[in-house]
């Protein structure tokens, strides 16, 4: 598969504090903030019906719980491997949204990483970064 480009953010899951305290372990039942995992908008038919990346013109292969993706922070080239543990982000809420680092931009939300995975390749305080996602 050619790398899919877009934007990434992070989300908490599993046991946690504050507003994350009620997050639960995600659609796959395995999600934890401290593990290298991610949410994928097309983790199932039911998931796709919620996230609808197609409404933003994003074609995304259906892949289920445990599938491995590799996400690259296009601001610094750092890369992390994670497995699908939840459904999300809700791409259609953010159609056309862009995040840029200088001239490098990503459009449309395609992946959310756990805090452990996101912080391996970017700062949690950044919130939204341009990224690419591939399978190798």
């Amino acid at each position: 598969m050619a790398a899919l480009t877009g934007t990434m953010s992070w989300f908490c899951c599993g046991n946690s504090w504050g507003p994350c305290g009620t997050a639960g372990h995600g659609a796959c039942g395995t999600c934890n903030s401290g593990s290298y995992q991610h949410a994928w908008p097309n983790a199932s038919a039911a998931c796709f019906d919620i996230t609808r990346p197609d409404r933003c013109g994003v074609s995304m292969t259906r892949r289920g719980c445990g599938f491995r993706h590799y996400t690259t922070n296009r601001c610094n080239g750092k890369r992390v491997g994670t497995t699908i543990a939840d459904c999300g982000p809700q791409t259609d809420l953010w159609c056309g949204e862009r995040a840029c680092c200088g001239s490098v931009c990503g459009t449309n939300r395609i992946v959310d990483l756990t805090p452990a995975a996101f912080s391996q390749i970017g700062s949690l305080s950044s919130g939204l970064l341009p990224c690419s996602v591939d399978t190798v």
Partner: peptide, 25 residues
């Protein structure tokens, strides 16, 4: 923070907990 990351001493397997990451109160 944006510049403070360091390379992992040991690669972490996708899906696995990262021993170099902590959360809590």
């Amino acid at each position: 923070p944006e510049a403070a990351f360091a390379a992992d001493a040991q690669p972490v397997e996708p899906g696995a907990p990262d021993p170099n990451f902590a959360e809590g109160r």
